[in-house]
Design a protein around this nucleic acid. Structure first.
Lengths: 336, 336
DNA sequence: TTGAAAGCGCTAACAG
DNA sequence: CTGTTAGCGCTTTCAA
């Protein structure tokens, strides 16, 4: 016994498929009596429209692709939640895949998602290269970058001002007299947000005439264990840092833990600022001073923007920059 | 200009659609020369098969639905990662949706996913009722529960032995002389894993002839703030607990933080054991003693099981119970 | 307000 | 080894 189709409903209700299709899709051009009749049959038969057939006929699947580095990282998980909530609101479903930031995976995923005829794509990656941009332009569907940017801003994106945010944090350190400020910058890429953060770091130092010391800058992934290693490296230095700026809360948390393990007091011996204000920030002691990136909102706004493109709505601004701020908690001292 | 189809490739290569279909699907019944010719045209035209059309014709979409309470919670995020990795391995994509454990959302999602013709479904929920079971049985696709169970074990599932795990943890506490052991049990449901944990708690007490005190048991969600509140409640008691067992690491972490805020020392004044061994456990100080539920593996095994059903492979066991253990870290004292 | 009919792009017999 | 031919279940003109 096969599934029940629109044809069965039509026959049973004594109308044509077209009419059934109309009532299912809420087309107003159906006489109320007819609508009721059809609705009853649908109810009775337990008819459920086949979205695949519908997708083939209408060329719309009401599903969007989401390519994300790693859903098991708090930051990305919160981003994803923002995306999914708005998607739900607009009746879209999400195909979610982890790329691990590998170019190969990324392109493979873009391809399979296009093959699955997603109506739009949200792409998240540290490194959006020209090749990515070409691929997105060739795709016949809208693409929005979330918490990611391409160098030339050719693809619509939702971010914060990473340079400025970092500049603010470093300047705060400088204002408290710090001269040796370490930077756990995140991955080494060529065109990502970690470059923007690096700019902010250097600009802040320059503005205060503090010489740049490359020993104080460490590249790594964003995970906890990377932070642990980085801290050890910094601790081997002859001139140790007195403040650390971290490109993620996980890294910052790792620094706090490593400090604790070394018997170093945070914030009195060393101050730490994180990035993202993930749930972690409030879940640790001392609580973490961190740059608030409205993670959930970035996801939500990115998805909202995508819906506008998908529905050919007017959009004023292709590159949305959300506000950021620093929230001061226990891992930094009060300003003098 | 419309997208390029299998028909275009066929015409261009001077073969039939069927032949193109064969080479695309790796059917061996194609002469190497023909295959090469077709492949070249595909390459040249940049042909990409339309998965929707394929899905309609073959009745297979190579996508599975995943209904999860909340992807922004570490535990579920790790579960999801396990699911997705194995899905990738078997060339499936995932439609991921958050249910927030609402019955309404859950049923709505089951419905839309069936409408989208997913080949299988992974369902995660604290509370799998008979109505859920009926729905799953009516679906014409395999369903696997991950870290979830239905009372009568009618639906295939992958879990650990929650009762035993809790029993072990409580028994450990008892072995160290604790008499007043609190339990943050998780949500109040009628048929979920938090009931199993509760059984373990009570059985352990009973085995040691320790009277049950309902004031020591607190129901809540699994989040950090819930734990904070629960701790306050416990702290108001005339006879405070000397040990706390928490149904999630977030709850345990909250207890540690609340204790810290009260100037109470963990583990010397009070011991804490968590559940799940999420990344959090190692990311806090003191590090967290916790019941190791192989979260990623549960997801992975559940997905693997689902692939077996989808491919009509032989499966020996419908309900898989993975091993658990307790990992002792800083939030508990050494055994005397 | 309704129905007929032509696809959407592909797979899957069935022939040859 | 290759081609022909039906569909898959639905949307969408176009007429009526």
């Amino acid at each position: 016994m096969s599934n029940i189709t629109i044809y069965d409903v039509a026959r049973e209700a004594g109308v044509s498929m077209a009419t059934v299709s109309r009532v299912v899709n809420g087309n107003p051009n159906v006489k109320p009596v007819t609508r009721k009749k059809v609705l009853d049959v649908i109810e009775r038969l337990g008819y459920r429209p086949n979205a695949v057939a519908r997708g083939l006929a209408s060329k719309k699947t009401t599903t969007v692709g989401v390519i994300i580095p790693d859903i098991s990282h708090v930051f990305y998980a919160e981003l994803a939640r923002g995306i999914e909530d708005i998607a739900t609101m607009y009746k879209y479903n999400i195909i979610l895949s982890n790329s691990d930031q590998t170019r190969e995976r990324e392109f493979h995923l873009i391809n399979t998602m296009l093959g699955k005829q997603v109506d739009g794509l949200i792409f998240i990656s540290e490194n959006v290269t020209d090749t990515h941009v070409d691929e997105f332009k060739r795709a016949r569907i809208p693409v929005v970058l979330a918490s990611s940017i391409d160098k030339k801003h050719e693809i619509p994106s939702v971010t914060i001002d990473y340079r400025q945010a970092t500049f603010d944090a470093i300047t705060n350190f400088i204002g408290k007299g710090h001269k040796r400020i370490a930077m756990l910058k995140g991955p080494d890429t060529t065109a990502g947000i970690s470059e923007r953060k690096m700019e902010g770091y250097q600009d802040a130092l320059k503005a205060a005439n503090i010489p740049f010391d490359e020993n104080l800058v460490i590249s790594s992934e964003y995970a906890h264990e990377d932070g642990l290693e980085a801290f050890e490296e910094l601790w081997k230095l002859d001139e140790r840092p007195t403040a650390i700026f971290c490109a993620s809360d996980e890294l910052a948390l790792a620094c706090i833990n490593a400090a604790y393990d070394h018997g170093v007091d945070v914030p009195n011996d060393i101050e730490v600022i994180g990035f993202n204000d993930t749930k972690l920030a409030k879940m640790i002691r001392p609580t973490l001073t961190t740059v608030v990136q409205p993670t959930y909102d970035i996801g939500a706004v990115a998805m909202r923007l995508l819906t506008k493109y998908m529905n050919n709505e007017e959009v004023e601004d292709d590159t949305i920059v959300l506000p950021h701020h620093i929230i001061f908690r226990g891992s930094t001292r009060d300003e003098k």
